[in-house]
Amino acid sequence: MLEARLEQANLLKKVVDAIKDLVQDCNFDCNDSGIALQAMDNSHVALVSMMLKSESFSPFRCDRNIALGINLTSLTKVLRAAQNEDILTLKAEDAPDVVNLVFESAESDRISEYDIKLMDIDQEHLGIPETEYAATISMPSAEFQRICRDLMALSESVSIECSKEGVKFACQGDIGSGSVTLRSHTNVDKPEMNVEIDLTEPVSLTFSLKYLVGFCKASSLSGQVKLCLSNEVPLLVEYALANNSYLRFYLAPKIGD
């Protein structure tokens, strides 16, 4: 059986909120290392990969592999009933029909309990190759969100060019063009404001801004976001969570520009 207790419902609420517009029905794969999710969007352009390590829960117990097929719209409805600060416990039997969610208020004696019916989801699981990326950029997640939103006002796509000079986000649209260039930057007092660019070779790729703006819904999960790029491979956008847990998005580049 599965029993996983989160100190704050907020974490799951934010994760689900960040991915629910991209993917609808997903398997939450539970085993003794934690709870994982991998799903592609309907058009097979983007892929979400979430890992909530067992260390992110206290306690965490999962004796055998259990796949919880959950509709994220349903999960959102139930999670809306949880206060951000509630303790959240997920429970399921070994061959479950439902997943049970319990929300406990730390301040009052209120206990809420919900069951969500599970779905049988036949999901294609993709192998993501280990990649030595040519460029890795760590930057404030709010900054990345702002750049994507600003450029989307002008264009559907953004080119991300990483060179010794820095990283340049550029777009061209009907009304004109725009670009934002960032250089490495260290803020001793506020390390969350750091921009770190690790480059082994110059990279230039073009991506759909609609997807990037969607990924940025995860910005509240982490002060920093990591962008990993190599020519002609999908972009990795990673939001690191506590205890080595993470929420990752992969986005296929536009080709033949």
């Binding site: 352009v45 993709l126 192998g127 796509s157 992969y250 986005l251």
Partner: peptide, 14 residues
């Protein structure tokens, strides 16, 4: 203009 690539053409079956 550029065409949108697909994730499945980069990431295959494990």
């Amino acid at each position: 203009t550029a065409s949108q690539g697909s994730i499945t053409s980069f990431f295959g079956a494990p």
